Simulated scan of single mutants.
Amino acid sequence: MKIIDVQNSRPTQDGAGVNIRRVADFQRLSLDPYLMIDELKSDNKADYMAGFPAHPHRGIETFTYIRKGGFEHRDQMGNKKVIGAGDVQWMSTGFGVVHSEMPVEGDEGLHGFQIWLNMPAKDKLRPPQYQDSTDSGLPVVSNHSGARLTALAGNWALDGQAVSSPLQGLAASGAIADVELRASGQAQLNLSAWEQALIYVHSGSLTEASTCQLLRIQGGAEVTLTASEQGAGALVLLGHRIGEKIAHMGPFVMNNEAELRQAVMDYQAGRMGSIS
């Protein structure tokens, strides 16, 4: 595995005061097509119960994955779903989405992610799209070396075993998986079809990185992930670089400042809709 760089996620707040850890790059676009990875992990309700009240997006795709606890999602398209442990949800916001994500009451705590992918300029104003896994579930494949891969989006191969998520069509051929490794376990992944490859360690540690660290590695090859003696859990995020300049302001990601101003005006005029 050729490591390009290692980044630490940093504590911050978003929504109505939710404590999260974040890795983001809206300047150099080193994570392209990914823009931001937010992790919410806490057993303290005060860290997350304020949630994410109604807010807009344009020009990005949001991907939510819950490992523990749950959120209720609502949007102006009429979708109302509880995204619980083991489920994912994807929105290709295009022209615009107004949505809310509010934590579900419970005592188990919350561990989940929201990931932003950029959209190419040609798709930024298309109608929004929505998918989730609440009805279909997500496929899981294991090996004899102590690895378990859950295909969250796209197509995967673990030690030659192919598996496909029901969520397909992410921007820039994005593919996301959760790989869990027992102590000293190994997983061989074929990344030859993708230019960009990111690994975010959410539990335990790999031999190359610890919890809350993001590895950016060279794509286009096979890689082997090896856990430390404490085991590991990591998100693997793949895709192709879009390679376009962006303009970013809050929940909007466009290609220039004029498009950002138009996004604000469209939202304020109600052209993105509202949650009933």
Results as ranks from 00 to 15, higher is better:
R148G: 02
D132I: 12
C212W: 14
L170H: 07
A193R: 03
D159I: 00
R126M: 15
T224F: 02
E101C: 10
G160D: 06
V179M: 02
N118I: 14
V201E: 03
Q186F: 09
A187S: 04
S173C: 05
G146N: 00
G174I: 04
G96R: 13
Q218Y: 11
L170D: 07
R182F: 10
A121Y: 04
E195H: 08
E108W: 15
I199A: 05
N190A: 13
D178C: 10
V201L: 04
G146Y: 00
D135S: 06
A183V: 11
L110D: 09
S192E: 09
L167S: 04
I176D: 01
T150C: 08
E180R: 10
V223G: 01
L225F: 09
A197V: 01
P139M: 08
A147C: 06
L167W: 07
K124M: 10
V179G: 00
T226E: 08
A121K: 11
L198I: 00
G174E: 13
A172R: 02
E208W: 01
P128C: 03
L152M: 05
A197F: 01
G219Y: 14
R126H: 14
S192V: 15
S210K: 02
L189K: 00
G109H: 03
L152P: 07
A147D: 00
V141L: 00
H144G: 14
D159Y: 00
Y130F: 11
S165H: 05
G94N: 14
S136H: 08
V98M: 12
T224P: 00
S205Y: 14
E195G: 06
Q114N: 05
F113D: 03
F95N: 11
S145G: 01
Q161F: 06
E208R: 15
I199F: 03
S100Y: 05
G112E: 04
G204L: 07
T224R: 07
V98Q: 07
H202P: 09
H144S: 15
L215M: 00
H111T: 03
L181N: 01
Q213A: 09
A147E: 07
A147V: 06
L158G: 11
R126G: 07
N143H: 06
Y200W: 15
A147T: 04
Q196E: 07
G94H: 03
P120W: 05
A121S: 15
Q196Y: 04
D178I: 11
G94L: 02
G106K: 10
H144D: 01
A121R: 13
I217Y: 06
A171E: 10
